[in-house]
Design a protein around this nucleic acid. Structure first.
Lengths: 352, 352
DNA sequence: ACTGGCACTCGTTGGTCAGGAGTGCCAGTG
DNA sequence: CACTGGCACTCCTGACCAACGAGTGCCAGT
C-alpha cells in the first residue's frame, strides 16, 4: 500500500474551490483584520458561486479545523492550521518591487563593518516587513580563524583579539600567571596563529590542546592560560550575538493580535537564548523556515509567527535571520523580504 | 528687592500640611494607580485633620497646578509639576535593602569583559527598578587610547583595532592605497602608538594631523589613509553605543500609563540618538538628572520619566546610565537603584 | 451541485437608570 | 481664623434592555 502525498490527502477532503475560499479568507483577514463573512467574500473575490455555497464550504473548512468563528453569527478567522495550509500550498510568491530591491541594495552597500552590516540589515528588515526583525551575527562555530592578535597591556595582562573570516572580532582580557616581555608575546602570537589560522572554530579544540603540548617549558603556563580562555569563552559557551529591531511594530494593533499578554512577547524577545533557537538553527540558505502560532516552542510566542532563514556567503550558512509578527501577518510579502535580504547579505559577505 | 528662593516661594503658597497632602497623594497614586480621594487619604495617612480640610487643601493644590482631577467627582492625580515638587522636596531617600546591595555586587562582580559589564548592568537595573534600563558604553570621547593595533589581513587591507582605557575595543577595516609588507605595518603601528597612547580621544585630532605630517614620503599615503579612518569613524561621528533592557516592563499597565500611543515610546527607544541625548549628557557621577513627563524633549516620551546619572571610575564620568518609566513611577526607589548601580559600576571600572 | 430564501443567533450600539465615590460650599464651633 | 460636619451636586460605572444587523445553517427548489 502506498501512502498518498500531502497534496492528495488535502485534495481528498477539500476540493479546489474550498481551497480557493480558504485563500480568500486568509487574504481578507490579513488585510482587514476582521472576521470575514461569506457575503463580503463573494463580493471581493471572483468566486463564481453564491454566498450560500461559500457558506457550505466554510462549514466544511471549519470541520477540518482550518478556520474558526469567534462566536455564532460572526465571520470566520483562519486557525494556525489554516495559515499553515495557506503558506504551504496557497500563497503565491509576491516579488519585491524594484524600488524595494533598490532600497535594499542601497542601504546595505553602504556598510563599512560587520557591526554595521548587521545593524543595517536588521533595521532594513524591520522596516520592509513592518514586523520585528532578528539577525544573528555570523556564528563563531561556523567561522574560521583569520588572525589572532595578542596585545600586551601590562606584563601580566594581555588582550586576545580574534578576527574571523566572517568579519567578527572578539576580544578577551587575559591575566597571565607570569610576567611576559614583548618577545614572549610575539612568540606566543605566531605559535597560535600558525596553528589556528584558517581553521574552523568548531574544529579547533583538538588543535588548541596540541598547541599546549607542543609548547616548551618556560612558556607553557602562559600558553595554557591562553588556550583556556580560547576554549572557555570563545568555543565552549559559544558567544553568539543577536540584533533586534522593530519592536515598536508590535504595538500596532496590540489588543487584537496578542490576546492576553503582549508583554509575554516582549519578554521572550529579551531572552537571547530564545531568539537564538528561533533564528539560529538553519542548514541551508535556500530553505526558509516558518513557524506559525502553536508551532512555536516557546510559550510567550504562541500567538506569533516566525519566518527565518540562514544566510552566508555562497551556499554556506554562517548565521540566521528572520522576522517575527502576529500570526495574521502578510506571509507572501514577509517571505519575499526575508529571502531577498538574506541573499543580499550573503552577497555582501562573499565580497569580503 | 531680593527674590525669595524656591523654598520660600513654595512655603508662601503652600503650608506644611498641604505639602504633606501632596506627598500622600503621590505616594497613594503610585501605589494604587487610581485617583485618590480625600476620604481614603485621611484613612491611610496620619493626617490629623478631617477629610473636609483635606479637600480644601486639595483645591488649593489644584489651583497651583500640582494635582488634577480627571473629571468632577473623581479623586486627584498628580501632575508633572506635582511629581516635580515631590522629587525635589518631599521624597525621602529609600535605601536599598542589604539583599539588593548584595545582589548588585554579586551580579556585577562576575563580569569578565566590558560588554559583559554593560550587559549585566542593564539587566540588573531593569530588574531592580522594574522599568526600562539604558546604559551607555563608556564614551570614546572621554576615553584615552591604551593601544592601537594593526593587523594585516591582505597586503592592501588592514584591520585597525583600538583599545581604550575604559575597556572598549573598536575595530575598522582599512583598505590601503598601496600594498604593504609586515615591516611597514610594524612601523606604522609603532608610530601611531608613540603618538597617541595615553591620549584623550577628544584631544587626538590635532595629534593625528601632525602624525601625517611627520611621516616620511614612502609611507605617507598609508598613514594618511589610516588617520582618515581614525578621524572619520572613531572621532568625528563619535561611535557611541547603548544597551537597553526591560522593555517588557512597559507592557505592565499599558493603557493607563501611556494614553494614546505606547508604540510611540517603543519607537523612541529604538532611536539610539534619542537614548543618547537622554542618558549621555551628564557631568558628574554624583548628580542625578530627572526628567518628568513634559520636561522631556522628545515627543514620544512626554508620558514617561527618566532618571539618569553618569558613571565612571572615581570622579570622572565616562558614560551615562538610567531608567525610563511611566511618570507615576516609584521615584525614591528608582533613584536609589540608579545611584547604587552607577556607583558599583564605577568601582568596577576603577579596578581595571 | 448549486442557489434563494428564511429563521435564528448573538455581538454591537445606544439609551436609561440606580448606586456611589468624590467634590465644593457653607454655616457652625473652639 | 482654622477646622469640621453636613448637604447638594456631579458624573463615572455597571447593569439592564431593546433595536439592529451581520452572519450563519438549513432546506426546498432548480
Amino acid at each position: 500500500m502506498t501512502w498518498p502525498g500531502l497534496r492528495e490527502v488535502v485534495a481528498v477532503s477539500l476540493d479546489e474551490r474550498k481551497l480557493e475560499v480558504l485563500r480568500a479568507i486568509v487574504e481578507d483577514y490579513i488585510a482587514t483584520q476582521e472576521p470575514v463573512g461569506s457575503k463580503s467574500l463573494v463580493e471581493r473575490h471572483q468566486l463564481r458561486v453564491s454566498s450560500a455555497t461559500v457558506r457550505n464550504d466554510m462549514a466544511a473548512l471549519e470541520d477540518e479545523g482550518y478556520i474558526h468563528q469567534p462566536h455564532t453569527s460572526a465571520g470566520r478567522v483562519p486557525t494556525d492550521k489554516g495559515y499553515r495550509l495557506f503558506v504551504d500550498r496557497l500563497s503565491t510568491v509576491k516579488p519585491l518591487s524594484p524600488a524595494e530591491r533598490r532600497a535594499i541594495q542601497r542601504l546595505l552597500s553602504g556598510a563599512v563593518d560587520l557591526d554595521d552590516i548587521v545593524h543595517r540589515t536588521v533595521r532594513l528588515l524591520a522596516q520592509l516587513t513592518r514586523q520585528v526583525a532578528v539577525v544573528q551575527y555570523p556564528s563563531l562555530a561556523r567561522s574560521t580563524v583569520r588572525h589572532l592578535e595578542l596585545v600586551m597591556l601590562t606584563p601580566t595582562r594581555l588582550m586576545l583579539v580574534m578576527i574571523t573570516n566572517t568579519g567578527r572580532v572578539e576580544q578577551r582580557l587575559v591575566d597571565m600567571p607570569l610576567p611576559l616581555d614583548e618577545d614572549d608575546v610575539l612568540d606566543l602570537r605566531s605559535k597560535i596563529n600558525d596553528k589556528l589560522a584558517g581553521c574552523l572554530l568548531s574544529d579547533s579544540p583538538v588543535l588548541i590542546e596540541t598547541l599546549v603540548e607542543e609548547t616548551a617549558q618556560p612558556m607553557r603556563p602562559a600558553m595554557a592560560t591562553l588556550s583556556n580562555v580560547l576554549l572557555d569563552t570563545l568555543i565552549e559557551r559559544r558567544e553568539e550575538r543577536i540584533s533586534l529591531a522593530g519592536t515598536a511594530n508590535l504595538a500596532r494593533g496590540t489588543a487584537l493580535d496578542f490576546p492576553g499578554s503582549f508583554g509575554g512577547v516582549l519578554e521572550a524577545l529579551e531572552e537571547e537564548v530564545v531568539l537564538l533557537k528561533l533564528i539560529g538553527e538553519v542548514e541551508s540558505p535556500t530553505t526558509l523556515r516558518i513557524r506559525i502560532g502553536d508551532e512555536n516552542e516557546f510559550e510567550g510566542l504562541r500567538t506569533t509567527s516566525v519566518v527565518s532563514t540562514g544566510y552566508g556567503p555562497g551556499a554556506v550558512v554562517v548565521g540566521g535571520l528572520g522576522v517575527l509578527g502576529p500570526t495574521r501577518m502578510d506571509y507572501p510579502g514577509t517571505i519575499a523580504a526575508v529571502r531577498a535580504v538574506a541573499r543580499y547579505v550573503g552577497e555582501l559577505l562573499a565580497q569580503n
